Simulated scan of single mutants.
Amino acid sequence: MKAIYPGSFDPFTLGHLNILERAARLFDHIDVVVASNRSKNYMFSAEERYEIIRLSTDHLQQSLSVVQYPGIIADYIQENHIDAIIRGIRGSTDLDYEIKLEQYNRKACLAETVYLTPTTKHLNTSSTLVKMFLQSKKLDLAAEYLTDNAHAYIGSLLRAK
Rank of each mutant, 00 (worst) to 15 (best):
N105Q: 07
N41P: 05
I77G: 03
L134P: 02
P70N: 12
S92P: 12
I52E: 05
S36L: 09
N37T: 06
Q68D: 08
D75I: 06
M132G: 12
H59Y: 11
L116M: 15
H16K: 00
M43F: 14
L129C: 09
S126E: 07
M132W: 09
A35L: 06
I85Y: 06
N41Q: 12
V34R: 03
K100Q: 15
A74S: 11
Q61C: 02
A74P: 03
E48G: 08
E48A: 13
D31W: 14
I99R: 06
V67P: 00
N105F: 07
M43W: 04
E48F: 12
Y69F: 15
I53H: 02
L134C: 03
L110W: 14
Q68G: 02
V33T: 04
S45Q: 07
N80I: 00
E48R: 04
H81D: 15
L134R: 02
D94N: 03
T13R: 02
Q103R: 07
I86K: 00
K100C: 08
V66P: 00
V33D: 06
S92T: 08
N37E: 05
A84D: 13
H29P: 11
I19W: 13
Y42M: 04
S65V: 02
T13W: 12
M132T: 12
T57M: 02
N41E: 06
N41W: 09
A111C: 04
S36T: 15
D28K: 12
S39Y: 07
S63M: 11
K121R: 10
I86F: 11
S92I: 15
T93V: 15
T117H: 10
H29T: 09
F44E: 00
R38E: 11
A74D: 00
H59S: 08
I77C: 11
Y50S: 12
L110S: 14
L101A: 12
V32T: 13
A35H: 03
A74H: 00
A35M: 09
V114W: 05
Q62G: 05
E79S: 03
R49D: 05
Q103N: 15
Q103E: 15
A46F: 03
Y104K: 13
I85M: 03
L123D: 13
Y42S: 02
H16P: 01
I85Q: 03
K107V: 14
Y50P: 02
C109E: 07
R54D: 15
G91L: 04
V130K: 04
V32L: 13
F27C: 10
S39K: 05
R90C: 08
Y42L: 04
S126D: 09
L60C: 14
K121Y: 14
S36E: 12
Y42I: 01
T128F: 08
L134W: 02
N18I: 10
R106P: 01
I99E: 06
K131H: 10
I89K: 01
F133E: 02
N80Y: 14
M43N: 03
I52H: 07
L110V: 09
V32A: 07
L64M: 13
Y69T: 00
H81C: 08
A24K: 09
D83S: 12
K40Q: 12
Y97N: 04
Y115D: 09
V67W: 01
L101V: 11
R106C: 13
H29A: 11
P70T: 11
N37K: 01
S65M: 08
L17H: 11
I53R: 02
R22M: 01
S65L: 05
T119P: 08
V32I: 15
P70E: 07
